[in-house]
């Protein structure tokens, strides 16, 4: 297990270096940064001086090395738009996105798994059939459309829930949370529903398909032949085997949630990292874009490594360190 972990960490480092290279190259696509820093009538000597001061005269790999070294310490320089450290900007926005994604992820699991089981165990029942139909709509409707529909129904017509923003937040250290105020919680409902809807339907359909598959296996038939209770067969013998692929997809989709949060944050004017990124794109604020790219990739890498470790917990066949039996 330790060897596996070390191998995964080394792989992750290479992935992050590659992402950092892309983020670094982004600066060069935006043209010569010196042009935007010096006066228009600056002499060649003045330009050279600025170039030297910023280290831009050094070879590319050296600049890349310096970028990586700084990024590793969380230093992505200053935002070109408002001259504040990029790391501070991201830290301000991170809690909003994290809470939104967390609520959406929990919702999709807490609802998706039981609904998937229900539709698998009672495939012909009315609730199962209607859920299948609704999930088809959920999976094919673009998320921004559902978001706008949610606003129309619950904010405009019914007036129950706010249509934008985070409501009231409480600061705990540097983390600002909306979990402890009623307004904050109410503000979370619509965006998290919009964000989780796709995942929810995906997980539900996946659990259903996997469960149906597992229920056909010999070991389930043998469990039935031994007279085990239906409850144990469904929730102990079948579910555990069902969850292995579900964990994979969920892990991959968790990254997707963070990415899709951009759309949700835009629709609900949610002050998170996604909204920050959209602003950065429209202003050509490369340091913020680069930092967002690196941060989201880091989260992806961490999630995928965690998923691989979770496999081993769920599936004993993957615990390679244990003493193998006679074969």
């Amino acid at each position: 297990m330790l060897g596996f972990l070390v191998r995964r960490v080394i792989q992750s480092v290479f992935v992050m270096l590659a992402v950092a290279l892309i983020a670094f190259l982004m600066f060069r696509f935006m043209g010569d940064p010196v042009n935007s820093m010096v006066a228009e009538n600056a002499s060649t000597e003045e330009r050279a001086a600025v170039r030297e001061r910023l280290g831009l005269d050094q070879p590319l790999w050296l600049q890349y090395g310096r970028f990586v070294a700084r990024a590793a310490q969380g230093d992505f320089g200053l935002s070109w738009r408002n001259a504040r450290p990029v790391s501070t900007l991201l830290a301000e926005r991170f809690p909003a996105t994290a809470e939104l994604v967390l609520v959406a992820a929990v919702l999709s699991l807490v609802l998706g798994i039981p609904l998937g089981i229900l539709t698998a165990l009672r495939p012909r029942s009315f609730p199962a059939q209607s859920l299948q139909l609704i999930s088809l709509i959920g999976i094919s409707l673009p998320t921004f459309v559902t978001g706008i529909l949610l606003i129309l129904v619950f904010s405009v017509w019914l007036g129950w829930l706010p249509s934008f923003g985070r409501g009231d937040v409480v600061d705990i250290g540097w983390w600002s949370t909306g979990f402890f105020t009623l307004a904050g919680l109410k503000a979370l409902i619509l965006p998290s529903i919009m964000l989780c809807l796709f995942q929810l339907t995906l997980i539900m359909r996946l659990v259903r398909a996997e469960m149906l598959e597992v229920l056909r296996t010999d070991y389930i038939k043998f469990a039935r032949a031994r007279g085990l209770s239906n409850r144990s067969i469904h929730f102990r013998h079948a579910l555990k085997n069902t969850l292995i692929p579900v964990i994979t997809i969920f892990g991959l989709q968790l990254g997707g949630l963070i990415a899709f949060a951009i759309v949700t944050e835009t629709v609900f004017q949610w002050p998170g990292m996604g909204a920050l990124f959209i602003q950065a794109v429209s202003f050509g604020d490369v340091p913020v874009m680069a930092a967002y790219l690196v941060l989201v990739s880091l989260i992806f890498v961490i999630i995928n490594t965690t998923v691989d470790l979770l496999y081993a917990v769920l599936d004993p066949r993957l615990r390679v360190d244990g003493a193998r039996g006679a074969h």
């Binding site: 043998f222 039935r224 032949a225 031994r226 007279g227 239906n230 102990r236 085997n241 066949r317």
Partner: peptide
Amino acid sequence: RRIRGRRIGAIFQDPLTSLNPVL
């Protein structure tokens, strides 16, 4: 169900797939 396993047992063909891999 109470009879299965208790009064009538069953042995299936393929031992490789008859046992639950995660238990």
